[in-house]
Computed example of a mutant assay.
Amino acid sequence: MKFAIRMGVPEMESLWARLQQEFRSGTIGKKDALLYKKWGKALKLLAENPRHPSLHTHDIEQLTERYGEKVWQSYLENKTSKAMRLYWVYGPDQQSITVIGLEPHPEDKKNGAYSRVVLSDMPPFD
């Protein structure tokens, strides 16, 4: 089953829209272009198979408790300082995945690092 990818509102939706617009217009900076490329690749893999080995997908209990439904983390990059992580949930329907966060990996899990992760809301169900 292929999943439709949605962006959480308002943070993820506005960030993705900005990166797309800047990429298409040729005004995107180097750092943002690299993020856009890695994020796009991860979204393609996520849509095809959320458990794709290169995504290293696993649930994050602290975020699940905070968000009220199971929150998953997938890798955009690995083995680099502040490697970016994609946070997502299944829904709002059975064929959708919603990206609710995109942040560097929290360095210190013991000191409440996941409490500082910003999570978007689910988009309205169409």
Rank of each mutant, 00 (worst) to 15 (best):
M1K: 13
K2A: 12
F3N: 03
A4V: 12
I5N: 09
I5C: 11
V9W: 12
P10T: 11
P10D: 14
M12S: 11
L15G: 07
L15F: 05
W16T: 09
A17P: 02
A17H: 06
E22A: 06
E22S: 05
R24L: 04
T27C: 03
A33D: 03
Y36D: 02
Y36F: 09
K37V: 11
K38M: 09
W39A: 02
A42H: 04
L45N: 02
A47K: 06
P50D: 06
P50E: 03
P53H: 10
L55T: 03
T57L: 02
I60T: 05
E61K: 07
T64C: 02
R66N: 10
R66S: 13
V71K: 01
V71Q: 02
V71M: 05
Q73W: 03
Q73T: 10
S74Y: 03
S74R: 04
L76N: 02
K79G: 11
K82A: 12
K82G: 07
A83T: 05
R85P: 01
Y90K: 00
P92K: 08
P92V: 09
T98Y: 01
I100M: 02
E103S: 00
S115G: 05
R116T: 12
S120L: 14
S120A: 15
D121N: 12
P123M: 08
P123W: 05
D126V: 13
